[in-house]
């Protein structure tokens, strides 16, 4: 019996659920951030999480404060850059770190929320300060298995 064949002889397609995940990738002096998920919005949320992974361990960041972010851009790639740059801006002016994200995307418009707390240097031991999201290796696309990928290089 083949692995995708049932005892009754019927064929079924087993689809593995796409798990959201955040990851960093290598880039010279800077850091690549990548979010993956079943939808564009979850990939963006995970890209936000990856951005924080470049700075600290996100699980150490308590969701004490919520910040709302709105962006609008002519395409997905620039929308991702805007989303990450908005997070960098909020981190900078409010001296916050974030650990949780929620994103809704409607066409060219993104409404997001980021939850976090003020930087605590002894607990968060932040490694680097993100300066800005770049156009380098910037892409938002779907893989053949339906996974959305949102990534770019961040200058640190």
């Amino acid at each position: 019996m083949l692995p995708w064949q049932t005892h009754e002889g019927r064929f079924v397609v087993k689809v593995q659920p796409i798990k959201p995940r955040a990851e960093l990738f290598a880039h010279g002096a800077d850091i690549g951030v990548r979010g993956l998920g079943p939808t564009r919005a979850t990939a963006f949320e995970q890209a936000g999480l990856a951005l924080m992974m470049a700075v600290t361990e996100p699980s150490r960041v308590a969701p004490q404060t919520a910040v709302e972010i709105q962006c609008e851009a002519p395409n997905d790639a620039v929308l991702l850059m805007d989303w990450l740059n908005a997070l960098i801006y909020e981190m900078s002016v409010r001296r916050l770190l974030f650990g949780r994200f929620a994103v809704v995307i409607d066409g060219e418009r993104l409404i997001g929320q980021a939850w976090g707390e003020p930087v605590n240097r002894s607990r968060h031991t932040p490694a680097v300060e993100p300066k800005g999201a770049t156009l380098t290796l910037l892409k938002v696309e779907t893989r053949r298995d339906g996974t959305w990928v949102a990534q770019c290089v961040v200058d640190v």
Partner: peptide, 30 residues
């Protein structure tokens, strides 16, 4: 510091988005 970072952010975006209207073909967006 943050001022330079934000100037870079602002103008990198603006230059990339203005390119097509200016007839500029970029071999790479960056």
């Amino acid at each position: 510091r943050g001022l330079g970072h934000q100037i870079g952010t602002d103008f990198l975006r603006e230059m990339a988005l203005a390119a097509p209207a200016e007839g500029i073909h970029l071999p790479d967006l960056e």
